[in-house]
Simulated assay, not measured.
Amino acid sequence: MSTSDHEKNKQADMHNNHNQTHEQVKKENFIKRCKEASTVRKIVASVLLLLSILLIVGGISGYFYIKNGLKPVDPSDESTKTVTIPLGSSTSQIASILEDDGVISNDLIYRFYVKFNNASQFQAGEYQLSPSMSLEEITEKIQTGIMMQDPVFTVTIPEGKTLEEIAQLYEKHANIDADQFMEKMNDQDYIKTLIEAYPQILSEEILAEDIRYPLEGYLFAATYQFYEKNPSIDSIVHDMLEKTQQVALNYLPQMEKKKGYNMHDMLTLASLVEKEARTQEDRERIAGVFFNRLNKDMILQTDPTVLYALGEHKERVLYKDLEVDSPYNTYQNKGLTPGPISNFGEHSVKAVLEPEKTNYLYFVAAPDGEVYYAETYEKHKRLVEEHLRRSE
């Protein structure tokens, strides 16, 4: 064999050995991948099994959770207890009260029950409820207002009333001392607790130095029922603020669109409109006049603010009254009053949010209830002389 043949054989052997090694590596890699795939399959199968078990257990638990929440707390316990639903309570608050008093087992389930059954119009008051009652029975009872007793006091607070007038109404109809009521209205520490409790409607703005009473205008005009002989001033104030919040928040999106005006401004304007107008048409038109004057940086010149500044109830505002030195006198100061001058009605809020668009800059509210409007000061003077003759 020649040297060249020997080299050729040697190279052939090396090539064969290389091929054998390559095949062996491929075989080992294949076996390794098979083992890894098997391991992955086992892990996936274990995870799927665990998830299946969790879903089954969760589904069963959820089923019994809902079932128990829908059942009476104790079908065998027919004893009754007094449950109080405060005025203005939301569905969530009612659900929490019912659970706390032990007549439903789960407030969350009850909220879903109320939502799915479109239940509404819950009535405030005191009810005799039992742990043996079904959700349907409880809901029906607090919807229809079948209460344990009639209210001890019913007090109607009309629109356009000041805090001092409201205090007198409670003194007359609910045995509340008017002076003590007003003392509470001037308690700065108490007012601060209310600002914390109702941050969506009350702000530090009501504590401004020029404000006569922080809560002026914030105690809503409505009929309130009381089921105890001696209701506290605090409970009365909370009932009224709850109602204010319930109404005002319905209009919050519209209020936020009024650039340059916040809720305090809107309620202040609503109180001015409330005192000036009797019909909705006039409310909307007067609100439009106020905005026209504010936009032109004109003073508002509205008589009810003068009366509020004077602290008097008068049939007529005299020329000398217009000179009263007060931040509430809109004949002497530009812009809005520091705060509302009375409570408001919902119709006045609507008017402020949707004022009639006109070119009127003046109006005269005559003693007979008619309102006369003018675009120019000259015409306004004639209307004043004709319909509102002031004297010294």
Rank of each mutant, 00 (worst) to 15 (best):
I191G: 00
K334H: 14
T154W: 00
Q24F: 14
F112M: 08
Q254A: 14
D13G: 01
I94V: 13
S130I: 09
T21L: 01
Y110H: 09
L307P: 00
S89K: 01
D297G: 04
D179K: 13
M147Y: 07
D303S: 03
K10L: 11
K379I: 11
E36N: 07
E78A: 12
Q128I: 11
I94E: 05
N329Q: 04
L353C: 15
F153N: 02
H380Q: 06
L169R: 07
V247C: 04
H380K: 05
Q246V: 00
R390D: 09
K379D: 12
L267N: 11
K379G: 06
T39M: 13
L318H: 08
Y319T: 14
V44K: 07
R41A: 13
I341C: 05
L129P: 05
V152Y: 07
L49M: 10
L294Q: 06
E370T: 14
P72R: 13
Y224T: 04
H18Q: 12
P338D: 01
L215H: 00
K115D: 09
L129W: 00
P327F: 12
P327G: 10
R33D: 06
A270K: 09
N175M: 05
P214L: 00
Y373T: 09
C34P: 01
G58F: 09
S120P: 08
D234L: 02
R293H: 02
E346R: 15
R316Y: 15
R382H: 00
E209L: 02
S38G: 15
L98Y: 03
I176W: 07
L194C: 05
P86S: 07
M185C: 03
K243F: 06
I104F: 07
Q280E: 15
E216V: 06
L307C: 00
N118A: 12
G62R: 14
T154P: 00
Y213Q: 01
K334M: 11
Y377D: 05
K172N: 03
G58A: 11
E392R: 06
G69L: 10
E99P: 04
D234T: 12
V25T: 13
L55C: 03
N175S: 13
K357S: 14
I166G: 03
T84H: 02
F122R: 06
A374K: 08
F290R: 09
Y190N: 11
L50H: 03
E370R: 13
I195Y: 10
T80Y: 11
L383I: 07
F363C: 11
L70A: 12
